[in-house]
């Protein structure tokens, strides 16, 4: 019989746990999206700068 380890003092219903999982996964997906969008933005900025330098030259 397992004694629960790190979660032995966790007292919550399965529904609450499901909600927690959804929140945690939502956070992960949100971070992933922000990372992808910010990477796109950075690439676009670099491209713009390259164009500006090319135009200047």
């Amino acid at each position: 019989m397992n004694n629960g380890g790190l979660y032995k003092n966790v007292k919550m219903t399965l529904a609450t746990a499901n909600f927690m999982v959804l929140v945690a996964i939502g956070l992960l997906v949100f971070c992933f999206c922000i990372a992808v969008v910010s990477a796109e933005k950075t690439s676009a900025e670099i491209a713009d700068e390259s164009h500006s330098i090319a135009d200047f030259n």
């Binding site: 629960g4 979660y7 966790v10 746990a17 999982v21 945690a24 992960l28 971070c31 990372a35």
Partner: peptide, 23 residues
């Protein structure tokens, strides 16, 4: 951003792990 994603992965994995225990 990689650090933030790593942290979020650990958090989500632990939440899933705890949910498995409760189930």
């Amino acid at each position: 951003m990689l650090y933030i994603i790593k942290g979020a992965i650990i958090l989500a994995a632990c939440a899933v792990d705890m949910r498995k225990y409760l189930a």
